[in-house]
Design a protein around this nucleic acid. Structure first.
Length: 397
DNA sequence: CCTCCACTGGAAACCTAGGCTC
DNA sequence: GAGCCTAGGTTTCCAGTGGAGG
């Protein structure tokens, strides 16, 4: 055991660090220049420019698939805007509505970004949505704040909670003058406008900018630029960068994935004590990303979902809802937790399906009824190993 | 063509944990 | 402290259903 540790330390000491600026490959990093996005950045800047003359800019929608640079462009332009702006009351906020997860928390994060005074702070639960809204508007009115609010993954907000909140935002500005709230919406979903109230739509999409996916060539150039700041010279060869760009490019030009891949490949190479990133590192990084994704998903599951998954893993060749429920109830008994109802278990199975951990499709077996056909999509050994790390399940050894 | 199984999945009610105001 | 609010997970109830076997 200790030999392995020593070995790792020895190698780490001998090998030179490959990174000089690891941050340049982190997801939050906003580079000085955004290659291939000059046009879009310029367009965003043009829309927001009126802020500099203290008037409210048009609301704006940014469209494009994941990893096409929407968020980066928005952040980039906002940071430049802050630099230029002489108005004291300028406030900018960025909220990712999917990460915020609920309407309430989206508003709470927005309020945080505005810096509401201590006694007006939004607690993480307990207030009516309307009350939160009132506090925010009240604050903006009192401080005469000029606010640019970026709502990332706005399609998620609308899809799950409706467009009520957006409607209120778009209608609030009369009351706030001379302050205002300008919205910058970011959406992955090109069709999300269809479900929107026409009044919201016309106000929200006063301006629209579309972000096309990156081509493999563009990805390559982006990676080359990032690699130059991130690594020592010679660490990331053109061939290595090509491969990263190709792997990510085959998944619809997602720059975020490409950058993650390169960073992780660099970490793999560093740990191995290599001088440069080779193909094997990249392949392993690619596997690791997939593996981490699954493991992370497993770990963060509630205990009931874990018990259900564990029950699924007992059936080598698939099972159905009724049979699974018995196995699950048995596990619950053994670890001493209350079993959920079959209705709920059925719902959780659908959630696990959505996460890509199992496949649960409805099949009809004629006289023998209708049920979900359930199949594990990941290795059952790895799954059990990860799940049994949970103290509550450990007694199943 | 009809039946009837073993569920599915929608709807509504309920519960808990948190926080508000008075 | 009472009585109100919310989010989010769960239970209860139940009408609905695809298709193999009759």
């Amino acid at each position: 055991m200790s030999k392995g540790v020593d070995e790792i330390f020895r190698r780490a000491k001998e090998g030179q660090p490959l990174f000089v600026e690891r941050n340049a490959l982190s997801p939050e990093y906003v580079p000085d220049r955004l290659p291939f996005r000059d046009e879009q950045a310029g367009a965003v800047a043009e829309v927001l420019a009126p802020v500099l003359h203290d008037s409210k800019p048009s609301n704006l929608l940014l469209y494009g698939k994941t990893g096409t640079g929407k968020t980066a462009v928005a952040r980039y332009v906002i940071s430049r805007l802050r630099k230029e702006a002489e108005i004291k009351q300028l406030a900018t906020a960025y909220v990712n509505t999917r990460l915020a997860n609920t309407e309430y928390r989206t508003l709470a994060l927005f309020a945080d970004a505005l810096g509401l005074p201590q006694e007006k702070r939004i607690p993480f639960t307990g207030l009516a949505i309307g009350e939160v809204m009132d506090r925010i508007f009240e604050h903006i009115r009192l401080t005469e704040a000029r606010v640019v609010l970026v709502l990332d993954e706005i399609d998620y907000l609308v899809k799950t909670f409706g467009d009520e909140t957006l409607y209120k935002f778009t209608r609030s500005n009369e009351r706030l003058s001379p302050g205002f709230v300008a919205l910058v919406g970011i959406s992955n979903d090109l069709k999300f406008k269809e479900g929107l109230d026409p009044r919201v739509l016309s106000s929200l999409s006063e301006e629209e900018i579309v972000f096309p996916p990156y081509t493999v060539d563009e990805l390559r150039e982006i990676l080359t630029a990032r690699a130059k700041t991130a690594f020592r010279p010679g660490v990331a060869s053109p061939a290595a960068i090509n491969l990263c760009a190709a792997i990510a490019g085959s998944e619809h030009g997602d720059a975020r994935r490409a950058i993650d891949l390169l960073r992780i490949a660099g970490e793999v190479a560093e740990r191995e004590g290599l001088r440069e990133i080779d193909d094997t590192c990249i392949r392993r990084a690619s596997d690791k990303m997939e593996h981490d994704r699954v493991e992370e998903a497993l770990r963060s599951l509630p205990i009931q979902n874990k018990a259900i998954l564990l029950a699924v893993s007992k059936f080598k060749s698939g099972t159905n809802t009724g049979e699974l429920y018995l196995a699950y109830a048995n596990i619950c008994r053994r670890i001493g937790i209350e079993a959920l109802t079959q209705r709920r278990v059925s719902g959780i199975l659908a959630e696990l399906d959505l996460l890509g951990l199992i496949e649960a499709s409805v099949v009809s077996k004629g006289r023998r009824g209708r049920t979900k056909k359930i199949q594990l999509l990941i290795g059952s050994e790895a799954l059990q190993k990860t799940l049994l790390e949970d103290a509550a399940l450990a007694s199943l050894e």
